[in-house]
Design a protein around this nucleic acid. Structure first.
Lengths: 225, 225
DNA sequence: CATTTTTTTAATAAAAAATTAACATATTAT
DNA sequence: ATAATATGTTAATTTTTTATTAAAAAAATG
């Protein structure tokens, strides 16, 4: 599953490394920039999901970068958060005016920072929040134990079948197209035959019961109860 | 629903395949041409929504092809984007002079490329941005779950019926002519019989109730409450 | 390296959806 | 009112998509 990309721009390398370290630990893919110009350049190249900008930066300040982001068609919809010293709160106003999505105040406390980023990504629907334990009706999927329970009966699924079920369960009710499933489970390089998916569906249904996975003909599948 | 059509012209088959693959993955219908002449020919035949032209091509270069597109009444309003090596930026000027809508520079990075194409289509109003949840009176259409709710009763519609309803619901109150519906749902190549549309109307009305879809005789249909 | 488990393919069956055809009914203009 | 035109309805047919089963291939396990 592809990682969420975050770009951080700050002129202090220490802070940059510190933030990068903390975000990577959480499984994000992190890019960095030391000034506004570089930030814009990297943003256009990498198309991150979130850009975190220090307000005070050489060449182009954060607010200015944000304005330029909003005016660039390829990246205008990217989430932008500002980093700001608590004192310089005048910037809050200017920041939201140019379309910032969040503010994070310095000094930065790692756990708070990470929580903030997560919350923002979740709020905006970027983060695929794969809960550790997912429950859909009588079906419980325990991600860390890699176990599925149906009415308290424990079922072990092979790797692919489990991944498949987790994918559907990550957004119960939402329909996943066949293409989407192939792309997410097998990746875009691997090509498997047209019917492989159906066979997996059959196997999972045999094990967890027929009722959970619903076929949406012509479109895909969804998990429901 | 008919796919958005994109024509790509480039003399390097590898690049062509690469771009085609990435765009098809996004759900576009992609045509290709290996030189300018072929591009023009395919364009007139397929009437794509967007034509992406490499500047440097044998027989007819991109700029020349674009000029001819703009002089051809059947395709003069088609969107045109140029592919260009970053160095040869002199062409930018020539390109915009003949009426290019966008520039995409090589080397091409798949996500950036796709984002760019999407942005262009959206900007020019080609891409149908369908809201995830549409509500019209007591009728709720949930696109990601592909369900319809009428007074909290969940109704599943088959693919075409669902697409049809989404089309009407995309602009509640607006009348869609029969021709428009045929063209948007079936596309311009496919020819279905005169009464097919009526059959769909009947089926949808049976399922969601008679009152939502209003016939505007001599014109078409609209969704209202 | 032999055995078991998992993944994938292939062939066929079944189901559902899309379309047509034939006929019915309603609306509009003359 | 009546022909002409447009839309409605139903059932049958065709086409498309998914389900199922068994068996082969690949990977993992001891």
């Amino acid at each position: 599953m592809e990682k969420i990309k975050i770009l951080i721009a700050d002129d202090e390398p220490d802070i940059l490394d510190f933030l990068k370290y903390n975000l990577e630990k959480e499984g994000y893919s992190v890019f960095t920039a030391l000034d506004g110009e570089q930030a814009l350049q990297v943003a256009k190249k990498e198309l991150p999901d979130l850009i975190i900008l220090d307000i005070m930066m050489p060449k182009l300040d954060g607010v200015e970068v944000c304005r330029m982001i909003r005016n660039d068609n390829t990246i205008k919809n990217t989430l932008v958060a500002f980093l700001t010293a608590r004192s310089e709160d005048y910037s809050q106003i200017a920041g939201f005016e140019v379309g910032a999505d969040d503010y994070i105040t310095k000094p930065i406390r790692p756990r708070v920072f990470v929580a903030r980023v997560k919350a923002l990504l979740k709020r905006k629907g970027v983060e695929q929040v794969v809960e550790d334990i997912i429950q859909v009706g009588d079906l419980i999927i325990d991600n860390s134990k890699r176990i599925v329970k149906v009415k308290n009966k424990i079922i072990q699924l092979p790797k692919k079948e489990f991944e498949f079920l987790v994918l559907l369960a990550s957004k119960p009710g939402r329909v996943f197209t066949r293409d989407e499933i192939y792309s997410k489970i097998w990746g875009d390089e691997v090509v498997v035959s047209e019917r492989t998916l159906d066979v997996y569906i059959r196997k999972i249904r045999e094990k967890i019961g027929e009722s959970f996975i619903k076929t949406v003909k012509g479109v895909g599948y969804k998990l429901d109860f």
